[in-house]
Write a protein that binds this DNA or RNA. Structure first.
Length: 821
RNA sequence: GCCCGGGUGGUGGAAUGGCAGACACGAAAGACUUAAAAUCUUUUGCCUGCAAAGGCGUGCGGGUUCGACUCCCGCCCUGGGCACCA
């Protein structure tokens, strides 16, 4: 008998499928559409690795299932080619990013075709292609024209040898200092004028819009937490012997009668203005030290509170209390107003700080425990509920009522103003790097910024966009922090709209730029007139299911939603939200249980596995190994097991004939179709494969297999093992010549007979007081009385019951009997 | 520190209020073989027991329920994210 020859089978069908583009997504097809999106990869390694394959295979199987269910499916792919990962790879490979992308794009595409992915390659995109980034630049100019993009001083790591560096390229040395990852040079934080996008202006819309999606709750929560909306009040305090004031934001003004100090973030401008002469040296030293710490390090280190007294006092207008002012790095400049008012009785961090610096603690809230004594230990610090005391006109009120009342009072007196703050900040949208979309603006002689073209000027856009990235082999950044573009004089020097000399912007956009809107371009990837045709967008959008990295739950997802919502407000896109549903995939670890990485040497490449076992084996292994969302190690043994399993399927074809299958087999078949359908619908590909295994184990015991059952089986196998399924399907139908419409992948998903799929007679457990004592066979339609009679007739039940009387008889139809004795 | 996940046999996992461990892997024993590989058969949560049988068991401690891996409260451990990697 023939052996399963994966190489022949796969090469044969792969060629035919892609030549005839059987996975074409048809614009305006009368079939219902499904847009299934998996995040596009950013090429940064020699080849696709098995982790990528995991991310794509399961959604791809799902997209194939939907196609067979009669949907017009868009499952596109492309390359997120700009940005640091590719530039970094180019530096290491000693090539230009252009060469690298050419090479990797080809490799990745070949790898995906080897995997048999059902992709309409006519829609392939590459974010570094001028025809693509023309529109990224055009969209950027929309932000600029509407005042949502502007240059702003923002902190960045700077290295005198390497120029500006990303957080990721900076390490902490043994002495606690900061050094560059490459070369180990000293680096420091400095302010640099960079383009930002004003995302906080969309904070409210980004929160509200979540209601229009079916995102799982954990993703909605993550997005809300990232935006972090807080309702509170800005209180202005006068400073003793000074004209300066300090403004603090607080959500708990109710406790303000207990305020005993103020803490400023080290970044705060007023520090230098109000620090006393005696304290100046100590304060300067502290501020300097805090400068090179990241926000995160500052937060993590707050277990031990540090800080320095400024030698100045603010007056609490409610109590006339003289509150000493400190600088401490646990207060972050980027949060609220960069200053907090310390209420040590009712905030744990404030309490710790007060203990350390011997600041008095005043109790202003009595909690449920009724404790009214002085607060001397951390366990007495009440942060969340209770009744006011020691707070004049607030006394006796619940804290929540008191919060409203005191805010009214502070506003009336002119000491405060109700405010809503968001933690979400301006998004730094520039890199001092070569490999990105050039920002299409120029600096005029007088320093003014001018967009190179108005987005509404159709002819101008055709002429001026894309602003192409000039080619150079010398693409490393400059030591002054600017990108390689700053030394390319021919490109740098240009003219403004009046023909006067001007200089181009030398910063480029971050990788996010292209990936913020790529899902729109797949809809109309070759359009030179607009970024995508509106009618086509109306047909395809929103994306029905978006699968990707859990690390993108906040930033990428939020960023692209922000862009999209802005476009919606401009009337450029047809729906309020880009993605109807989002699901994240887990991480596939190396065989050693560690994250796959080149340095650990545990990277598994699908290429070698495909060579040895075939793509179908790799695909089905990735489906079978575990649930899509979870993280687990790669297991070489699973590949062998699945390969054996596919061999077993293939061998079954020898038993196929026209004879009727046994009733038992018919039942198993219908059950299998029913279960697999439900599982594919819910992306439970691992249990779907189990169903196949159960079915095959049963078929192995049969003498013959009815041809219609066999055809149905090859159809449900098709999304999982497309090559083998095609081979078996073509043979079962006796097709000798390839015809696109005969492909198994364009057939209808099989239906099942509910009667055969449901077992009529069931064995159900009989419990006494929750412990299983016996089993009885019942039919689904049977009445409770009849079941009860059967159960009570059982010898085992009688024995177990003994002398006890039955207090309660519970029968859950088709499930279980429980007797309470 | 804050936020979001996750903890079930030797391993990956199944079961979303109804017989915990489906389906696999691994392991052990056996068959075939000169032998090995491959293949096939059987066993396999833990403990006591020759067996029959019994007891225990889903990170830990409580609770709700006739019934809890599943729901609620409080812990412990662990993975990820925290804004210039994307």
């Amino acid at each position: 008998m023939e052996n399963y020859d994966h190489k022949n089978i796969e090469n044969n069908w792969k060629e035919k499928w892609y030549k005839d583009n059987i996975y074409e997504a048809v614009d305006f097809s009368p079939k219902p559409k499904k847009y299934i999106l998996a995040e596009l990869p950013y090429p940064s390694g020699r080849a696709l690795h098995i982790g990528h394959a995991m991310r794509y295979t399961v959604p791809e199987v799902y997209s194939r299932y939907l196609r067979m269910k009669g949907f017009n499916v868009l499952f596109p792919m492309g390359w997120d080619a700009f940005g640091l990962p590719t530039e970094g790879y180019a530096i290491k490979a000693n090539k230009t990013p252009q060469e690298v992308i050419q090479e990797l794009g080809t490799n990745y595409k070949a790898a995906m075709q080897d995997m048999g992915y059902g992709i309409d390659w006519n829609r392939e995109i590459n974010t570094s292609d001028p025809k693509y980034y023309k529109w990224t630049q055009w969209l950027f100019l929309k932000f600029y024209e509407n005042g949502l993009a502007e240059p702003k001083e923002m902190p960045v790591w700077w290295c005198p040898e390497l120029g500006n560096l990303a957080d990721e390229e900076v390490l902490t040395a043994a002495d606690g200092g900061k050094v560059s990852e490459r070369g180990g040079y000293k680096v420091e934080k400095k302010m640099y004028k960079q383009w930002v996008l004003k995302m906080p202006m969309y904070a409210e819309k980004l929160i509200q819009g979540l209601d229009d999606t079916d995102f799982p709750d954990y993703i909605k929560t993550a997005q809300k937490n990232w935006i972090d909306k807080k309702v509170g009040i800005n209180i202005t305090y006068n400073i003793e012997n000074s004209d300066e004031t300090v403004i603090v934001f607080t959500t708990r003004p109710d406790t303000n009668f207990g305020a005993t100090f103020i803490v400023l973030a080290p970044e705060s401008d007023i520090i230098s203005k109000i620090t006393s002469a005696e304290q100046k040296a100590a304060v300067d030293e502290y501020v300097e030290k805090a400068k090179n710490k990241s926000d995160m390090e500052r937060i993590v280190e707050t277990k031990v509170k540090t800080g320095v007294f400024l030698g100045a006092y603010a007056i609490n207008p409610l109590t006339t209390y003289k509150m000493p002012i400190y600088v401490a790095d646990y207060v972050l400049g980027s949060v609220g107003t960069g200053a907090v008012v310390g209420v040590p009785g009712h905030d744990m961090r404030d309490f710790e700080f007060a203990q350390k610096f011997n600041i008095p603690v005043i109790r202003v809230v009595v909690g449920k425990d009724g404790d009214k004594s002085d607060i001397t230990t951390a366990s007495q610090v009440n942060e969340s509920d209770g009744t006011m005391i020691n707070s004049a006109f607030l006394d006796g009120m619940d804290i929540h009522d008191a919060t409203e009342k005191i805010m009214d009072y502070l506003e009336e007196k002119g000491w405060g103003k109700r405010t809503v703050t968001y933690k979400i900040r301006d998004w730094v949208f520039a890199r001092q790097r070569y490999w990105g979309e050039p920002i299409p603006v120029v600096y005029k002689e007088n320093g003014e910024i001018e967009a190179i073209v108005k987005t509404t000027d159709v002819e101008g856009v055709k002429k001026k966009l894309p602003l192409e990235l000039p080619y150079t082999k010398d693409f490393k950044p400059q030591s002054d922090g600017s990108s390689a573009l700053a030394r390319m004089d021919d490109w740098l020097n240009t003219t403004d709209s009046e023909g006067k000399p001007a200089k181009r912007e030398t910063q480029t956009m971050p990788t996010w730029a292209g990936s913020n809107w790529y899902f729109i371009r797949y809809i109309d990837p070759k359009n030179d007139e607009v970024f995508a045709d509106f009618e086509k967008m109306k047909y395809w959008l929103p994306v029905d299911k978006y699968y990707g990295d859990p690390g993108h739950t906040t930033m990428h997802l939020l960023y692209s939603r922000f862009w999209y919502k802005f476009f919606y407000d401009l009337g450029l896109v047809p729906t309020t939200e880009p993605y109807k549903y989002r699901m994240t995939g887990g991480l596939l670890l190396g065989p050693d249980g560690q994250k796959m990485s080149k340095s650990r040497g545990n990277v598994v490449e699908p290429g070698t596995l495909i060579e040895q076992f075939g793509a179908d084996t790799v695909r089905m292994t990735l489906c079978f190994i575990g649930p899509y969302e979870d993280t687990y190690p790669w297991n070489e043994n699973s590949v062998k097991a699945v390969h054996k399993f596919i061999n077993n399927i293939y061998a079954l074809k020898a038993k196929v004939n026209g004879k009727e299958s046994s009733l038992e087999t018919q039942k198993m078949y219908n059950k299998m179709i029913k279960n697999v359908t439900g599982m594919a619908e819910n992306l439970k590909m691992n249990t779907a494969v189990s169903e196949f295994m159960i079915f095959v184990n049963a078929l192995k015991k049969e003498e013959n297999i009815n041809i219609e059952i066999w055809k149905g089986f090859t159809k449900v196998l098709a999304p999982f093992i497309p090559f083998t399924a095609e081979e078996l399907w073509q043979e079962a139908n006796g097709f000798t010549e390839w015809k696109k419409e005969n492909s198994v992948h364009l057939q209808e998903w099989p239906t099942y007979d509910e009667k055969l799929a449901t077992e009529n007679l069931l064995k159900i457990a009989v419990q006494i007081n929750g412990k299983v004592k016996d089993e009885v066979e019942v039919s689904l339609a049977e009445s409770e009385d009849s079941v009860k009679t059967k159960v009570l007739a059982s010898e085992k039940v009688k024995a177990a019951l003994g002398e006890n009387t039955i207090k309660k008889f519970i029968y859950v139809p088709g499930k279980i009997v429980n007797i309470v004795a």
